[in-house]
């Protein structure tokens, strides 16, 4: 194990150990703050209860990512192809981020009901912005000399997009997507808090009301694991897509 891994593991053990010890020494009731071992136990033993909710939330996030990409990729390409479009749209993009998305959550319940649609939309709205912006920045960061070369080769815009701009922007795209997926869980859960019939957020609200705090923490644990899974999933995809960076020596 490397030094950094050892330190990370050490910190984790220390924090959990302190938590566990505090709960036991001060005899804190489980419905106030359950110790980590109890939480872990609940997370495992209550898996049959948690799993369907986790699947719902996971589905919402994945669909949200899909929806966000379906809008972000064409939009970023369009804004890159036609600078007037970027000029016209960028104020709206910024405003869309100035509106606190969480404030929209109750409205989305009114408009789209208690089902998954509203939560998917919430997640999508959150992911969409960093992906669009970083992809556009990626396109723009392409070196001038490469553009001149493609111009002289007589390549049209979409051909240049396919051969040059898109692969060029991929690292930027994935950086944006990473940011997006980690906050997407927040979007979906808040959507479920406000009004839902299923999902980890719904489960947490229900458990909290019944003072089953260990179940609340277990749901949070599951949610965190899903976030981690998404993070590593995107990382894996990035490595696969940007194969030419593999083994490239960094000086």
């Amino acid at each position: 194990m490397s030094r950094s891994n050892l330190l990370a593991f050490g910190i984790l053990v220390l924090v959990l150990g302190l938590w566990e010890a505090t709960c036991r020494i001060f005899a804190i009731p489980i419905f106030i703050l359950p110790p980590p071992l109890i939480i872990a136990q609940t997370a495992v033993l209550k898996a049959p209860l948690i799993l369907p909710h986790a699947l719902t939330t996971g589905m919402e996030i994945v669909c949200g990512i899909g929806l966000a990409l379906a809008v972000a990729i064409p939009l970023a390409m369009g804004m890159f192809a036609w600078p007037w479009l970027e000029k016209a749209l960028s104020p709206f993009l910024v405003v869309s981020q100035a509106i606190p998305v969480f404030a929209l959550a109750p409205l989305l319940v009114v408009w789209l009901g208690y089902g998954m649609a509203g939560k998917i939309l919430m997640a999508a709205i959150i992911i969409f912005f960093p992906v669009t912006v970083s992809l556009l920045e990626g396109f723009k960061s392409c070196d001038r000399e490469f553009r001149v070369l493609f111009r002289l080769m007589g390549a049209g815009f979409w051909q240049t997009m396919r051969l040059l701009y898109w692969p060029w922007a991929l690292p930027h795209f994935f950086a944006g997507l990473r940011v997006g997926v980690t906050v997407a869980t927040i979007g979906a859960v808040i959507g479920e808090w406000v009004g839902a019939q299923k999902g980890l957020g719904y489960l947490m609200i229900q458990a909290n009301a019944r003072l089953k705090v260990d179940l609340v923490f277990a749901a949070i644990l599951w949610l965190s694991l899903m976030g981690l899974l998404l993070w590593f999933g995107v990382g894996w995809l990035e490595k696969k897509s940007i194969h030419w960076k593999e083994n490239q020596q960094i000086l």
Partner: peptide, 29 residues
């Protein structure tokens, strides 16, 4: 623009294409 070839001080090879694919770019476009 469509009459001359161009060579720059940077080699301008695309890192995601092999050397052969890079050399074939003018033929492709």
């Amino acid at each position: 623009g469509d009459l001359a070839a161009y060579m720059h001080q940077k080699d301008l090879l695309l890192p995601w294409f092999s050397l052969l694919e890079n050399s074939l770019l003018p033929a492709r476009t």
